[in-house]
Write a protein that binds this DNA or RNA. Structure first.
Length: 313
RNA sequence: GGCGACGUAGCCAAGUGGUAAGGCAGAGGUCUGCAAAACCUUCAUCGUGGGUUCGAUUCCCACCGUCGCCU
């Protein structure tokens, strides 16, 4: 099963509560920021005390500078899953990175074409030249008219990736975008009414910055030699914290920016998850999110897939 | 009290006698190897009232407001 939804709604505490209730369950992190090693404050990676003894996989497994993508995560997730299956332990996938969850659950075939950084840089530069992205879009249309129709030709990253796939395997884009090995899963969405959600985000953002914890984390990361740009791309909040550190932003302004960016991010997450009709949404109130355990457990029992497993077959 | 400047969307801001750039914020959306990313769509009738004009946000007058200088 998976618990998904916008950031700051309490997915982790809820998942932990569910795992404790089930007894034989472990968490599998599906948050693209929490996989980064040693950056826990700004990424809101769960702490040991928040996990209450429940193991959580794929947490802090890569360095900030290290390139990492959905494919890496899926590979890791599949490994975790088979290991858990072997031990007869149930996995609870928790996280807000929709693409990761989808890649695992739907079994997106990522084409087996790893990124080519040098070539990407080259094309990105081309896209910033005279003709803009259109130059790349035209190339894509030439090489695969059909495939091009399914790509957002205004989006450099998408076009560049499409070309990258064609470079590597030729043929047509469509052939590289199948689905293989999905996992049928119960999907639980956790969200809150707008005002509560805004409140949760504000409280979290304030605590993160005003306590000084994020600033401290940024300081120690820099002391370890982590490059600035790696830090900035480590998630919402790091850019703001860095700005406070070098004095270009007041703490108050940083808090505002963090709140704003986080809200916008939450909105994007909602947009992503809302279109998936399989998700069963639970709405939390201002109280603790783990009060919803019972509802999750009910959902598990009602769910045919899990029902069989729970009854011991 | 006098003189001067300014008054364009929530904020910053360009501009023209023919019916309002852009950025930020907001709202909505897209999504198959950077996804807390990248991208798309959308959002004003120009302080108020008169006048000139075929037509004014753009010219003139008055008023209101803000800022500066002077007394």
């Amino acid at each position: 099963m998976a618990i998904v939804g916008p950031t700051a709604m309490g997915k982790t505490p809820l998942a932990v509560a569910v795992a404790l209730r089930l007894g034989d369950a472990e968490l599998l992190n599906a948050d693209s920021r929490q996989v980064i090693r040693d950056l826990v404050v700004g990424t809101c990676a769960p702490t040991d005390s928040e996990l209450r003894g429940v193991p959580c996989h794929l947490l802090g497994v890569r360095d900030p500078q290290q390139p990492y993508s959905v494919a890496d995560w899926v590979a890791g997730a599949r490994a975790v899953l088979s290991q858990l299956d072997g031990r007869g332990v149930r996995a609870i996938v928790v996280g807000g990175t929709g693409l990761y969850v989808s890649a695992l659950v739907d079994g997106l075939d990522l084409g087996g074409v790893p990124p080519d950084p040098a070539r990407r840089r080259q094309r990105l530069e081309a896209s910033m030249g005279n003709g803009g992205v259109d130059v790349l879009g035209d190339e894509l249309r030439d090489r695969d008219p059909q495939g091009a129709a399914a790509v957002d030709l205004r989006n450099p990253r998408r076009v560049i990736r499409a070309l990258e796939i064609l470079d590597a395997r030729g043929g047509q884009l469509q052939a590289a975008r199948g689905r293989v090995g999905g996992r049928d899963a119960l999907l639980i969405g956790l969200d809150a009414p707008r005002d509560v959600a805004d409140q949760l985000i504000e409280v979290r953002s304030r605590r993160m910055l005003e306590s000084g914890a994020l600033i401290d984390e940024v300081h120690s990361a820099m002391a370890r030699g982590i490059p600035r740009d790696a830090l900035e791309s480590a998630g919402i909040g790091y850019r703001e914290a860095l700005a406070v550190v070098d004095g270009s932003l007041t703490l108050e302004a940083a808090v505002d920016a963090l709140i704003r960016r986080t809200r916008r991010y939450a909105k994007t997450q909602r947009t992503w998850f809302r279109r998936d009709p399989r998700i069963r949404w639970l709405e939390r109130g201002a109280g603790p999110a783990d009060a919803l355990v019972d509802e999750v457990i009910d959902a598990i029992h009602q769910d045919a897939r899990s029902g069989q497993r729970l009854s011991g077959r």
